[in-house]
Each structure stands twice: as C-alpha cells, then as structure tokens.
Computed example of a mutant assay.
Amino acid sequence: MGGTEHLTVERVGATLVLTLNRPEAKNALSLPMLVGLYDGWTEADEDDSIRSVVLTGAGGTFCAGMDLKALAGGGRLDGDPHRDRLKADPDLHWKAMLRHHRPRKPVIAAVEGHCVAGGTEMLQGTDIRIAAESAVFGLYEVRRGLFPIGGSTVRLARQIPRTHALEMLLTGRPYTAAEAERIGLIGHVVPDGQALAKALETAELVNANGPLAVEAVKVSVYETAELTETEGLERELERGWPVFDTADAKEGSRAFAEKRPPVFRRA
C-alpha cells in the first residue's frame, strides 16, 4: 500500500480505505493528495483481493476543494517533490479526482463536515454516498468567479434532476445533508461521526457478493447510461451472459442450494 503525506491508505478486510489527510486545511486538494489518490485507484484496479474502496476525509471533514490560498499566492499544484509525477502524466489530477477515471471496483464515499467545490465534484465520481447529518455540500466556484471544471456541468444534471443541478451550480449556495439526500446527491444520512462505519458496513455487503458479477454490473450501469433503452438492453446482455458461465456463478447457486455462504474465487 502506498499513500503520501496528505493521503493515507488502509486495508479493512477486502476494502481499501483512502483518507484525505490534510485536516488543517479542511483537506483542500494538494498535489501529494492527488498523487496518493491516483495511486490508490490504481492499486484497487490492479489488486483482485480488493473488492471495494471507501473514500473519506480526516479530521471531521471531507474536502473543501482546491487550495485557493495557494492559488491566490500564484502557486499551482507543482510546488513540491511530487511535481515530476504531474509532469510525467499531465492528466494525473483529473484521474485522481475521478474526472478521467472510473475505478473498476465500487467506490463508497463517507462524508463528514465540508464536501464542497472540488469535494462535491469528486463525490460525483463515486458510486455510493453516505454523509453525516452536519455534512455540507455545494459547488462554490461561481461565488469566486471560477468554473466547476471538475466535471459538474456535465455530470451533475445526469445524476440529479436538472433544476436542482442548475440551482446548485448557479447559486453556489451550501446544501445540508438532508437536502442533498432529498435531491438525490447522496443516498444515506447518518449521525455525525458514523459515516465511515456505515460506509464500511455497506462495503462488507458489496464484498460478500461475486466480484465478477459486481464489476460487470457497475460497468453495465455506466456504459449504458447514455444509450437508448434498446441499445442499453443489448449491451446489458453482452455484459451479463458471460457472468453466468463463470465458476463463481455456479458456486453461488450451489451455495444457495446447500444453505451456506458462497466462496467466490474470481473465476
């Protein structure tokens, strides 16, 4: 497992936990954080023993977006020892923020505190979203004369009703967790301090399932999203039928008949 000074990596069973770890700056995005995220997504994709990923933040907050103080001072994200990574892959930061990369494994967000600007943009790249009661969401960019270039003008209206997406984008106002749940931005609201526990509980439910089936389902949902229903149903069969031919599918049926938990082997 990797990690950097602003991103910690931990294994909890079959779940990889990535923690944004710059609490003194409300986990504002930094190059070490982005490099750590990129490496974490890569590890999850390449390690078949990892069944799911939980993304969270340290210090009671998720992510306050870009480091505006650094930008105001003329700095960019290349002022530290990790700058060679960005030079080698100029797209690294977009992959880290899930703008230009979709992890193979399900990603569950566990949000406490502020999840605004770039935090809300990164959230849109996750699959399942859990937030604490006092969590705050919002796309604040227009308030600063900036543009939410992390994908929100494209993704948000595909994930929640357009009128809510446009209100969030154009007003730049904060949203409570209850309101975010009501408009469909997040799926669960839990007591403060319990977001990570709920995310890990949800991850365990995912991890208990056939990994080949889980990954095929995730791919099918995303790749058919912009197709017509007829095209999508055709693509679903292309993704779904091969799953039935796997040893895991046979094991699942056998375990059900024998009234025992299945033992899946990614085969």
Rank of each mutant, 00 (worst) to 15 (best):
Q124H: 11
G125T: 00
G79Y: 07
A177P: 08
H164P: 00
E133A: 15
R155M: 11
F137V: 02
F62K: 03
E121T: 04
A177L: 03
V107C: 07
T126H: 06
W94R: 15
M97R: 07
D91T: 15
G172I: 06
R155V: 11
E179Q: 15
R99M: 10
E133I: 01
R144E: 11
V142F: 04
G151K: 01
F147Q: 04
R102C: 01
G118E: 07
T163V: 12
D89K: 09
G119P: 02
W94E: 11
F62H: 14
D78F: 11
A110H: 08
A177I: 03
P106C: 10
M97V: 07
R143G: 05
A64M: 09
R155D: 13
C115K: 01
G73R: 11
R99N: 09
L170T: 14
H93F: 13
F147Y: 15
P174C: 00
E179T: 13
P81N: 00
G75L: 12
A178M: 03
G118L: 06
D127C: 06
A96P: 08
S152P: 03
M122L: 15
D67K: 04
V154Y: 10
V116H: 03
R99C: 04
M168Y: 11
L86A: 13
P106T: 09
M168S: 08
H93T: 12
A135E: 02
G172T: 12
V111Q: 07
G172R: 11
M97A: 12
R129E: 01
K87N: 12
A180T: 02
V111F: 11
F147S: 05
H114W: 13
L77S: 02
R129Q: 05
A64Q: 07
D91P: 01
E167C: 01
R85C: 06
H101G: 01
H93Q: 10
T61H: 15
